[in-house]
């Protein structure tokens, strides 16, 4: 299970928000479909005996860390997409469907901070 329980939704869809803009290098034509790795996300340990820890970290490269949190949304958010037509074209339908209703988001609202290389050196 990649997501903590609070985020876990039936479809697995979740919302992640980062302050600012993420610049990803344009991928070479050969691997257009390849997902571009950004960093590693570390969720709080899922320990029911301890008070709920909502901090989330994202390590970008070896020396940057973003501190974020699992934030409960004031109003839940529906993730909506165009209904896929079983028969006709893929995007042809006039109907929308709710793919998921999420109650939490992963929010990185702070600037990245430098971290020491630690054991990497």
């Amino acid at each position: 299970m990649a997501l903590p329980q609070t985020l876990g939704t039936p479809s697995g869809l979740a919302i992640l928000e980062i302050q600012g803009t993420m610049n990803t290098p344009s991928s070479p034509a050969s691997d257009k479909r390849q997902a571009h790795p950004i960093g590693k996300i570390v969720f709080p340990p899922n320990d029911p005996t301890k008070p709920v820890d909502k901090r989330v970290y994202m390590y970008v490269g070896k020396h940057q860390r973003l501190t974020g949190e699992l934030k409960k949304l004031a109003n839940p958010i529906a993730i909506i997409q165009r209904k896929k037509d079983g028969v006709g074209g893929a995007e042809g339908s006039d109907e929308l469907e709710i793919a998921e209703i999420v109650h939490y988001k992963i929010l990185f609202a702070h600037r990245p901070e430098p971290v020491g290389g630690g054991g990497d050196e």
Partner: peptide
């Protein structure tokens, strides 16, 4: 920070061409 703490999923960005279209609606 211990390596154990750092176990977690890798955050990846799907290239714009292959991204899906979703709208977000507050309920």
């Amino acid at each position: 920070m211990s390596t154990e703490d750092e176990s977690g999923p890798e955050f990846r960005m799907v290239p714009e061409e292959s991204q899906q279209h979703f709208r977000l609606l507050e309920l």
